[in-house]
């Protein structure tokens, strides 16, 4: 699961607009300057990397507030996929 966390953090990092230095699990996604299209592209990139589906409708709020919440959610989806495989 360390790989999942690192993979997600790397993808989030590629979209960060206004933070210097390494990302923390406690960083709020909103505070990183991600715009709506960044969130869309990030969601797609994570789905592609881990071959999972993240349930997300842009008409509702993005469910994950921090980097840690997003990592945790992706870890859960990856574990679920592995279990069902």
């Amino acid at each position: 699961m360390v790989d999942v966390a690192n993979g997600v953090i790397e993808l989030v990092g590629s979209k960060v607009r206004n933070k210097q230095g390494p990302l923390q699990m406690s960083d709020a996604l909103e505070s990183l300057g991600l715009e709506s299209l960044d969130v869309l592209e990030l969601t797609f990139a994570i789905e592609e990397k881990f071959n999972i589906e993240i349930p997300f409708n842009a008409n509702t709020e993005f469910d994950f507030k921090t980097v840690g919440e997003l990592v945790h959610a992706v870890e859960g989806l990856v574990a679920k996929k592995t279990a069902s495989a």
């Binding site: 869309l40 797609f44 409708n57 842009a58 008409n59 509702t60």
Partner: peptide, 20 residues
């Protein structure tokens, strides 16, 4: 679908509970 702005139920413009 990839834009994630399609409604899963119906189109309810200007209404609360609208989903796309």
């Amino acid at each position: 679908e990839a834009m994630r702005i399609l409604a899963p139920d119906t189109c309810r413009p200007f209404s609360r509970e609208r989903k796309g």
